[in-house]
Write a protein that binds this DNA or RNA. Structure first.
Lengths: 232, 232
DNA sequence: GCTCTGAATTTTGAATTCAAAATATATTAT
DNA sequence: ATAATATATTTTGAATTCAAAATTCAGAGC
């Protein structure tokens, strides 16, 4: 307990400080989240508090608080008196997840057709065009990023805060399932065409068509992920 | 730090111990949850850690862990460096809540019609009859309890774990909104008739009708709660 | 040789302590 | 008397400490 020199490293994130009123446990939670999502911490593996404390250079208090947050998000499991483990990706649960997500997307579609402003539709169209550019240039990471951003924007513009929260939360698990299925993004072309359909319906403000398009898109994504999970 | 005699009170919950491997923070979280739901801690009020620690007779560590859990459930808000406050009941958010819940109920209905076993349908019918008994005898608390139990059972039997979790989580906030609207249960008669419709559709295994009935029931509940909230 | 029992060690749960931020109070100058 | 600043107190954030539970490992018994 004495070989590491500086226990407190206050110069850790010095330099630019736009707004860093972040509690320590929030920083740790975000790091952990990423590690779990990207598979750096493998599903099913036990989490040693000591190891993580050392790697993050924080005490156990904020780490344990962060673990509680992650547990509520369903990324880790807290076993009584025996620490935490990363939750397994259960295909059954993933199926349930998509079954719900599909309906949330449909609701989103109905709301969007009613509530989206002209400016917002234009913004989405612009994002869509950008994404297509990346598609043509085969720039996967950028494509993926824009894809995510469009979906988030759609949820935001539907104007229902609860819906946005739920979609965000479920999307966490979906992202994880994707990684687990070794398909950070599958179905480039198909997916792009489905997005086209979504944008079209939105511009026509055809709620029913939009709901169907979004529902379909999510359903197909789900099928692909589940297939990927099955063939491991 | 000296007037209270025993800091550690190990004889707190002695006696019956069917299984008590409950972490302290879980117990505290459950207590807090109840206090917030029942309005014992008023919306908007600041939470003093010291006061609560003393009243619960625990140290700040488990209390703070519990607060983090409640924050994720949306019952309290964590302000950086200035503690926690009970979240306000925002009619706008409650409206969003029901907008989503209505669709989740519809999904639940579709799944139920497909997946419920005969035995489970019989069980639900039995619970329904019991509830009607309490209705006839005007036993409000028992009626309310059965009502809740039926809804939970419906969610369970629909066989989608994610759906069950979401409905449970959202139901927390709905319960809180009900209390805030001073209507622990409104619409006895209407509600009973709607339940009748639900049971009928389920016994006929008419997915469409069941989804409609459940959707309607939730929508009407929402309208009533929102009306109650508006007239405060 | 294997299993079961029982210490020694490690790991977790919870209380306490220390430090920093925020709030309240007092003091002084205008 | 009021307002602004400085100081004291309280309250929160995070590290440390202490105790209890679980795990590991050794040895005895079969």
């Amino acid at each position: 307990m004495d070989d590491t020199a500086d226990v407190n490293a206050p110069e850790a994130l010095a330099g630019s400080a736009p707004l860093r009123r972040l509690s320590l446990y929030e920083v740790v939670a975000e790091q952990l989240r990423e590690m779990v999502l990207e598979g750096e911490l493998l599903p099913g593996s036990r989490i040693s508090e000591k190891r993580l404390c050392e790697s993050f250079e924080v005490s156990r208090t904020p780490l344990r608080e962060a673990l509680k947050v992650l547990a509520n998000e369903g990324l880790v499991e807290l076993l009584p008196n025996r620490g935490a483990k990363v939750t397994e990706v259960d295909p059954r649960e993933v199926a349930d997840l998509f079954e719900v997500m599909v309906e949330l997307e449909a609701l989103s579609g109905h709301l969007l057709a009613r509530r989206a402003g002209e400016a917002e539709i234009a913004e989405l169209r612009a994002l869509h065009r950008q994404m297509l550019d990346h598609y043509r240039r085969q720039e996967r990471p950028e494509y993926f990023r824009l894809n995510q951003r469009i979906h988030r924007r759609l949820a935001e513009i539907s104007g229902n805060g609860v819906l946005l929260e739920l979609e965000t939360a479920l999307n966490l698990k979906i992202t994880r399932a994707r990684y687990a299925a070794n398909m950070k993004l599958g179905r480039w072309d198909e997916s792009a065409r489905e997005h086209e359909r979504i944008l079209d319906a939105l511009e026509r403000r055809d709620g029913e068509a939009l709901a169907c398009a979004m529902r379909d898109h999510m359903r197909k994504t789900g099928d692909a992920v589940l297939e990927g999970l099955a063939s491991r």
